[in-house]
Design a protein around this nucleic acid. Structure first.
Length: 882
RNA sequence: GAGACUGUAGCUCAGUUGGUUUAGAGCAUUACCUUGACAGGGUAGGGGUCGGGGGUUCGAAUCCCUCCAGUCUCACCA
């Protein structure tokens, strides 16, 4: 078995090879059978998106869970897909048409535009799914879904019709968040507020038929042209005398009432507030209350409309400049001051959001939300980490109606058909026509007489059906019945309202049950300074470049080793390097094991069986611990634990224990045991680092066809555990370490001759007397001889571990003073320890109140501490006699 | 403005119902080691009054109160 292997692990070739192999073998494919299903639906990335750090984290976690389920023998199904992202995609398509094809959207019919949009999607969309393959994502690609494909489209239309028929939909005029660039309405969740510096303009309005002025403060002087009132606080003494009078709006000289309303804050600005009902949410409410006129001075693209009278056709920003100049020229501008305020911008176009009154479709949420709230409250759906329940509860209890219409073409067109003053909602125009004919009792109404709503539905109105729609329908079918409810949703908490809550609502609405058992919320990926990673900051590493540099396994290690559930992840490339180093360590371990010759004629070393038994126990203990951690999604901790088991326990200890002398061979039996353990380690590591584990698995043995680590059986913990074996080995390892320490301190070579004396005592574990333990100890510590003694041999260096005492003869001149100093330091520590324990035991209330086991443990600690003090004193005494 | 979460070693984090030999890991750092599978390695060391202050308790990193700092969510005043 003398294979020549490259010195370093090369991830690139290995990863490509195995991903292709797994695909060929169809290991990612899932079809319903009689096994238990384990299902994850991917949080569909935006079809225009490319892989970034957040995706990498999120999808690595999903892949880990899916691969673990596969190893556990479940029918693992991970459904990939993308969403159509109305606003973002439409913007990209429009840009593409303009720049590449020289076509304007306005020159196209709706049908033509949709054709182009689908073309664009085929050509450029979904790159991210290809990138996920580089990461090792084991999705069932045959199931790839898209929120705008025919199947998903039908589900969305059906859901709209269902909700309408059940009375959950309505149309209404509301103040909405209008994106003047994308020319569509935005939901509250799509508006990002941030502090921006602006100017507060103080403008005076003349009170009609007087020479008095009332000064108001505004950040948006251009909206003065749409003012229909000035409001003051009813009890504000400055303005009481003006109640019921009118002011003239500057520049347009419109006489508008002075109204009294408690909404006005007397402390702010001048205490007088201009009211523009068409362009401010609060003003709109006040306008309704006082029955004010609504003058909409803006067009949909935020240029001034004819109603503004002045500056018609100019953009709102230009108009502001000109209005301010004119106000100043005409003596209305009292003063300006710098002012920082919150400005809402469109998440997609970044345009300043314009409040606008318009007719939109809404979902009545309150009743729909009720079962969804209960499901989480009662832990029918469990959140990890649990504290996200608070956020969820707060939002669900204060839920607002959901505005679902969008003034775009790229999306599912609302299946509402208008005839005269009536609306007919149906999955097809033909059905709507039937309804219209029946309603008007007029068979002559023709299809062309009906006009369909021009708007499309919010993208989230597709996404909320995702856990059902990816399986084809909203009602029963074979796949849906088998895979739904899905096992776990892995997503960021930033879309808990946009998506998670709504999916739960939809699940209860159409399936009558939850869409998933668990929700695992990942943290936000930040840079090491704690800043959110973003394109504009340029602090986000290129995902594919990372994979190139560190290998997918290395990057997966890096992402996972620092990502507590729900906690933010402060990403540092060094962590990927650690992952890469780990791959090399594994590679080298494999190299070592397979480079030595193996012989059936050689007897196993005396310690080999012991080492095997010990590591088997260690592995079993590890499995027990990590199984519990998997249940709580403590993936980061499982990875760290795997890392430590493999590096420290397997490579540093186990391989050292069984290592043949330089140039010697392994016995057949020992080699087989080592390969078996190594293989098991590859299985438990596989979910985290799929590629190298598959490679090593196949290098360890010539495997039969289909005997691949990806579909191996996860090792089971052993029924019989032997905690004493683990404890005794811990003592042995500690002793070996102390002996190495002495060698190092005395500048002795690692293999310089040395003898060990072990003081016999009742406390000493009987294992140590056994031949195999003695053999293993002398091998590990490179000892010439081990003596068991009744009495302390004088003038030797002593080692105290627990309550056991050992001596070595370093065979070099001893620095007595230095030794004494060390012993005194140790003595001081032990005395401090003992006195802290004594303090407890001297306290009667402790002894009488604390549970007996706790008190007994303290007594044991005291006894052990005292024993150690005696040993140290004895050593000191002996040294002082020299 | 209302609320949530976090604060443990230089950094990233464990620390499960208060009691596990007077607080742990990984990384980083320091010293030493190179004919040992691996210098992307090995051996060992240093480093923390558990954000501050109070309280409950025989006993607090852990529970309560309060303050401070940070992150985030919701609502927003022109």
């Amino acid at each position: 078995m003398n294979k020549e292997k490259p010195k370093h692990y090369d991830p690139g070739a290995v990863e490509e090879k195995w991903y292709g192999y797994w695909m060929d073998k169809q290991y990612f494919k899932s079809i319903p059978d009689d096994r238990e299903a384990f299902t994850i639906v991917i949080p569909p990335p935006n079809v225009t998106g490319i892989l970034h750090m957040g995706h990498m984290l999120n999808n690595t976690i999903q892949d880990i869970l899916i691969r673990k389920a596969r190893l556990d023998g479940k029918n693992a199904c991970w459904v990939p897909g993308t969403d159509h992202a109305s606003i973002a995609t439409e913007a990209k398509v429009v840009k593409w048409l303009r720049e590449e094809l020289n076509v304007k959207k306005s020159d196209l019919t709706r049908e033509q535009f949709m054709d182009y949009a689908h073309q664009w999607k085929e050509k450029y969309g979904g790159i991210i799914l290809q990138q996920l393959k580089k990461l090792g994502a084991s999705c069932d690609w045959d199931r790839t879904a898209f929120t705008m494909d025919a199947t998903r489209y039908d589900c969305v239309i059906q859901s709209f019709v269902d909700l309408y028929n059940r009375g959950f939909l309505y149309r209404d005029y509301r103040m909405v968040n209008w994106d003047p660039v994308a020319q569509t309405v935005l939901s509250n969740e799509e508006v990002i507020y941030s502090e921006e510096s602006g100017t507060l303009y103080h403008v005076r309005y003349r009170v009609q038929d007087t020479d008095d002025y009332i000064t108001i403060a505004t950040t948006r002087p251009e909206t003065i042209l749409g003012d229909t009132a000035v409001a003051v606080h009813p009890e504000d003494p400055r303005y009481v005398s003006y109640h019921g009078k009118r002011v003239l709006v500057p520049l347009v000289d419109r006489a508008v009432p002075i109204i009294a309303d408690e909404y006005v804050d007397q402390q702010f600005g001048t205490g007088a507030l201009k009211i523009t009902p068409a362009h401010d949410v609060n003003d709109y409410e006040i306008g309704k209350k006082h029955d004010l006129e609504i003058i909409d001075i803006l067009n949909p693209d935020a240029t001034l409309s004819a109603a503004a009278q002045l500056f018609v056709g100019l953009d709102r920003d230009e108009a502001r400049t000109l209005v301010v100049r004119r106000l100043e020229e005409e003596g209305y501008l009292v003063k300006t001051e710098d002012y920082t305020h919150n400005v809402g911008r469109s998440e997609r176009s970044h345009a300043v959001v314009e409040p606008r009154r318009s007719l939109q479709w809404y979902v009545r949420m309150k009743d729909l939300a009720e079962p969804a709230l209960r499901a989480v409250e009662e832990d029918t759906i469990r959140f990890f980490p649990e504290n996200q329940k608070n956020t969820y509860r707060h939002w669900m209890r204060n839920i607002r109606d959901w505005c679902i219409s969008r003034q775009l073409w790229w999306g599912q067109r609302i299946p509402a058909y208008y005839y005269q003053d009536q609306v007919f909602v149906a999955t097809t125009k033909e059905e709507a026509l039937e309804q219209a004919r029946a309603h008007f009792n007029n068979a002559l109404i023709q299809s062309d007489d009906l006009s369909q709503d021009e708007d499309v539905l919010d993208t989230w109105f597709s996404s909320w059906l995702w856990p059902m729609s990816v399986f084809g329908t909203l009602d029963s079918n074979e796949d849906l019945d088998y895979y739904y409810p899905t096992s776990v949703l892995v997503t960021g908490w930033d879309i808990i309202f946009l998506w998670v809550a709504r999916m739960i609502i939809a699940g209860y609405q159409w399936q009558g049950t939850k869409p998933f058992e668990h929700v695992y919320f990942t943290g936000m990926v930040r840079d090491r300074k704690g800043r959110k990673m973003s394109k504009s900051l340029g602090n986000s590493p290129d995902a594919l470049e990372l994979i190139q540099n560190y290998g997918a396994d290395g990057v997966r290690f890096g992402m996972l080793s620092c990502s507590p559930a729900g906690g933010d992840l402060l990403f540092d490339e060094k962590l990927c390097e650690q992952g890469k180093n780990f791959c090399n360590k594994i590679w080298n371990g494999l190299n070592f094991l397979t480079s030595r010759s193996v012989s059936a004629k050689i007897e196993p070393g005396q310690g080999d069986e012991l080492a095997y038994a010990w590591f088997s126990q260690k592995l079993s203990q590890h499995l027990q611990q990590t199984n519990a951690l998997y249940k709580e999604y403590r993936l980061s901790q499982i990875l760290i634990s795997n890392y430590s088991l493999i590096w420290n326990d397997f490579f540093s200890q186990y391989l050292e224990m069984i290592k043949p002398a330089s140039g010697a061979s392994f016995s057949d039996r020992t080699f087989g045991q080592a390969k078996e353990l190594f293989g098991k380690l590859m299985i438990i590591l596989h979910p985290f680092m799929p590629f190298i584990t598959e490679e090593v698995w196949h290098q360890l043995e010539d495997r039969r066809i289909g005997e691949d680590v990806i579909v191996a059986s996860y090792p089971q913990e052993e029924v019989e555990t032997d905690p004493r074996l683990i404890k005794d080995m811990q003592l042995l390892i500690e002793l070996v370490s102390k002996i190495r320490e002495i060698r190092s301190a005395k500048s002795m070579k690692w293999n310089a001759p040395m003898e060990l004396y072990i003081k016999k005592s009742d406390q000493l574990s009987p294992s140590l007397y056994e031949g195999r333990w003695v053999a293993l100890l002398s091998k590990m510590a490179v000892l010439d001889e081990i003596h068991f003694v009744e009495e302390e041999p004088g003038a030797l260096l002593s080692i105290v571990i627990g309550t056991d005492k050992f001596f070595v003869d370093p065979k070099v001149t001893m620095d007595v003073q230095a030794e004494l100093q060390k012993l005194h330091a140790e003595l001081e520590y032990q005395q401090g320890f003992v006195s802290s324990v004594e303090q407890k035991l001297d306290n009667d209330r402790f002894v009488s109140n604390a549970p007996e086991s706790v008190v007994n443990n303290e007594r044991k600690k005291l006894a052990d501490g005292l024993a150690r003090i005696n040993m140290l004193k004895e050593s000191i005494r002996q040294l002082e006699q020299m």
